[in-house]
Design a protein around this nucleic acid. Structure first.
Length: 323
DNA sequence: AGATGTTCCTGTCTGC
DNA sequence: TGCAGACAGGAACATC
């Protein structure tokens, strides 16, 4: 279940393998994985063949590769503009998507959806594969558009002041050096909704999914239904700081277990096993309450069509008004 | 217009 | 052993 740390691990892994390499051929094994590409699979392939990957960048959970030369199938206008990437290969991993670097002799994965054959480079695998069991993820080609907020953001990528059009509405994530808490808090206070729904809204703050939202809320001792327009500044700071900590922990775990050949989304599985305090702990003792000598069992509730885990003792449900 | 509900997909697990 | 149903969830889209 890739959330931001997993996507960042993929980005970091991928960049050293694909930057500067040319896409020689594209094989779409399952066209259902070509999402949101209005002109269809053939156009998708035409835009990519012959293009060179300039970089791998990210905004929230959207990951894309700006392309230096567009493929033979791109418009003449696009091809003539020199030096500056105009389009990008966009990937969203959804829930089960993986981007893998594989040698040509490695058998196809069961859920292989798209294969990119890259120009050969010494000692490097020459296939980039998109594998996706549930087809919640997808690939498409998107225009790069100017942005006045300093580029895609994220960690350590190029300062190109262009962002993929399909990711332009996505807010910065809490790990982004340019993340603005003031902007987040101003917008949060204007919302009339519950705190967890706001945390999951990628247009408000990006990178937080269901699991890390529950973890951040637990660590901040806040209930998921807390009305956003009653949230005090210190409380909002707390939940963002905790989300940041959770993601940094996961990033560290993913980074250390990351095997150089495999650009995958499983880097954080060890983290999930060891470090979750809220998610999936229905019926188990709240760790914080237990440490304080209080007995309280974690509760699971349906919220937004998914599970939410809270401690009834240290994350009390908000009562009307009164904050 | 902003808030909320629905939908896409398939492997795994549970209960009968 | 088989089968049906629940469940997992990011984000676009539909609907209030």
């Amino acid at each position: 279940m890739p959330e931001l740390p997993e996507v960042e691990v993929v980005r970091r892994g991928l960049v050293s393998w694909v930057r500067g390499r040319t896409i020689d051929a594209v094989e779409v094994v399952d066209p259902r994985s070509i999402r949101r590409h209005a002109l269809g699979t053939e156009d998708f392939i035409g835009n990519l063949q012959g293009a060179t990957v300039r970089d791998v960048v990210r905004r929230g959970k959207f990951l894309w590769m700006p392309l230096l030369d567009t493929g033979a199938g791109a418009s003449a206008e696009t091809r003539e503009s020199a030096g500056v990437p105009q389009v990008a290969l966009m990937a969203h991993l959804g829930m089960s998507g993986q981007l893998l670097m594989q040698g040509r002799d490695v058998p196809d994965e069961k859920h292989l959806k798209v294969r990119f054959r890259l120009s050969p480079r010494n000692g490097m695998p020459d296939q980039l594969r998109f594998v996706d069991q549930r087809i919640f993820g997808g690939l498409f080609v998107t225009d790069l558009v100017p942005t006045d907020d300093g580029g895609p953001g994220g960690l350590g990528e190029s300062p190109l002041p262009l962002i993929a059009g399909e990711a332009a509405h996505i807010a910065r994530d809490p790990l982004d050096p340019a993340f603005s808490f003031d902007l987040f808090y101003r917008r949060l206070r204007k919302r009339k909704t519950g705190l967890k729904r706001a945390l999951l809204d990628q247009g408000l703050v990006s990178g937080i999914g269901n699991i890390y939202a529950d973890e951040a809320l637990w660590r901040a001792r806040l209930h998921y239904a807390r009305p956003t327009d009653t949230l005090r500044r210190a409380e909002a700071e707390r939940v963002i700081a905790e989300a940041r900590e959770v993601m940094l922990d996961a990033l560290a775990a993913g980074g250390t277990s990351f095997d150089s050949l495999y650009v995958n989304v499983n880097g954080a599985s060890g983290y999930f096993d060891r470090s979750l305090n809220a998610y999936g702990r229905e019926g188990l003792e709240c760790k914080r309450c237990a440490a304080a000598g209080v007995s309280s069992r974690m509760k699971r509730e349906q919220f937004m069509n998914r599970s939410s885990y809270t401690c009834p003792a240290c994350q009390p449900r908000p009562r009307n008004g009164r904050w």
